[in-house]
Each structure stands twice: as C-alpha cells, then as structure tokens.
Simulated assay, not measured.
Amino acid sequence: MSTEDQSRTAELRVGGWVPPYRQSATGPSPLPDAFLAAASAAVPQPGRPSGAPGPARRGHRAVIAACAGLAVLAVTGVMAYESGHATRPGPPRFVALPVVPTVPVPPLGPASASPSAGPAGRSLAANALAPGSASASAHSGAPAPSSARPSVSSPPPARPRPTRTRAPERRGPFTVGRAAGLEPAGMTGYRVRHRDFRARVDRIDATSPSLDRADSTFTVRAGLAGTGCVSFESVNYPGFFLRHRDRGVWLDRRDGTSAYAADATFCPQPGMDSGTVLLSSQAHPDRFLSLRRGRLGLGGWPVAFTVRSPL
C-alpha cells in the first residue's frame, strides 16, 4: 500500500466517511505537524488488526460520552425544576400590620380639679376614675354598666277595680234569688207545695221524703209582670211558676205571654200579725191567695203566710 492510500484509510478510521480529497489548482495546503503526528498514530501498525481501535481512543470516547450524558441530564433537570417551580403555588403570605403603640393616659391629678376642691374634690375625682363608674367607662371607651344607664320608668300596674257586690234585693220578707218555703200562719209543720201540678198545703217537715220537701221549696224571682212584686219558681221543675187560673193556683210552664206573667206575679203586703205576709194578684189587686179545703185559690179572704227556710 502506498503512502497516499494509507492517509485516506486513516481519515476514514478517524472521522468516518469524508468526501474524496480534491486538490485545488494552487496545490494542497501544508498540514501542521501536530495533525500529521496524530494521523500517523492512527494508522494501524503491522501486526495489529485493522478494525480494532487502540486503548487510548476507546478511553477518550467513553469520557466524551459520559460528559455528554451528564450535560444532557443537567439541562433536563434544570428545565424540569424551572417549569415546576414556576407553576407550583407557593404558601400563603401574610402581611404583618404595624403594632399601634398604646398611649398611656395620665391620671387625673390635683391640677385637673378646681383650686378650691379639697378632700371632697379628690374623692369625686377618684370616684370618677373608679373601675365601675360611668366616667371611667366613658374615658376608657368601654360601655357603662347597666346600673349607670338611665332606666325607663315603667307605668305603675293598674289597680284592680274593686268588685261591688250588690246587696240582695229585698221585697217584703222575701229575698230575690233565694229559695224559701211558705207556711200558713198558725199551721206549724205545714207547707205550701205542688202535687200533680196543683198548689196545696200538706204537712211536711224535716223527716218528710226528699220529693215532698223539694215540692215545698220555691225560688223567689222578681215579679214577671211588675216591679216590687215576686214570682215563685219550682226548684225541682225549673221554668214552672205558681200561677192562678180558673180560680185555682197551679204549677204551669212559663209561656212568655203577658197574661201568664200577670197571673204568676204576686205582690207582698204586711199581714195583721207580726212577721206574716199577704200575697195579692198582680192581675187582680183586690184578690189574694186563699186556702180552701187544703188547696190554694184566689179569693177575697186572704191567708197570711210566714216565710220559712227550705227543708
């Protein structure tokens, strides 16, 4: 092999394929001595395989590859750190406000009081700055206690009106609204009663049956037909009153007519004996309750009655 062929083979071995060498018209430029020495070292020597590089070249390639890999890793890490650091939200930041200094309030001394104020003035000043006083609260900005605030006076409670109890209305010996019994004068143990709705006089006392005692009890009402007179309502037959009709006295139901009201109204008049009473008719003032054969009627000969408590 000629020297020219050996130089071309060395160029192929060092940098890979290169285009064919072309000389310029002026001739090839002289090569530096360092390059020629490296090229001659790269030429395979007799006795070494042509395709196997030397140990020095293999070490150079490994160092170059390691440096390139480290450079790529460094660039990739820097780019990843910058991208992650730019998008990751940072922790919240708090801005500390400046602390406002507390201005001390000077105590109220003797100079603030009037010159003529003595111990009393000093005590008033001390009370004004007491912790619970309204002045101290206003000076410190705290609200005054409830005791220092003006209280709204509530109206006094209304006094209950005194209840006036009406005195029971008296009409002769009768009390309106109360039950009573009629006993004929001089006939002790006998009472006016109703039996089969007919008014009569029978012997009734505390030992008589309860039905007989109820038949002889009447509630005194104000006269149905006039003032100053009374009407007698049965206690065991409410709404039924003693009235006169057909010259007799009967226990009839009230029908609301004026004729019934006049027939059931009797006006008391004092009897000849003390404590006795006569009962005249409202409809016939000249006639009175009379007694004939144990039955009550209306006639010219009155019978006196004594008002008794119910049995």
Rank of each mutant, 00 (worst) to 15 (best):
P104A: 13
D212F: 04
Q6D: 06
D205A: 06
A86T: 08
A117H: 05
V192W: 00
M187G: 05
A68C: 10
P131D: 08
N236A: 06
S7P: 01
V75L: 14
Q282G: 04
G189K: 05
P30H: 11
D255R: 03
S112G: 06
S281R: 04
T207K: 06
R8P: 01
L296H: 01
R61G: 13
T188M: 02
R247C: 02
R203W: 03
A158P: 10
A222F: 04
T3M: 09
A128N: 06
S2P: 05
G51F: 14
R293P: 00
V95C: 08
M272G: 07
F241Q: 00
L251W: 00
R88W: 12
L108S: 07
G109Y: 01
G15D: 06
G177E: 12
D246V: 05
P55A: 15
W17D: 07
G226F: 06
Q6S: 07
G141H: 04
D202H: 06
S208K: 09
T207S: 14
P92Q: 09
F35D: 08
A52S: 13
A158Y: 11
R221Y: 12
A38G: 14
P20C: 04
V103W: 01
F94S: 12
H194S: 09
G248W: 02
M79Y: 08
G51D: 14
L296E: 03
T306K: 15
S274N: 10
A41M: 11
W250N: 08
V277H: 00
F232Y: 01
S29H: 09
A138K: 10
P49T: 07
A38S: 14
V176M: 14
V63N: 02
C267H: 07
A38K: 15
S258V: 12
R166L: 15
P270Y: 04
Y237K: 08
E183D: 05
S140D: 07
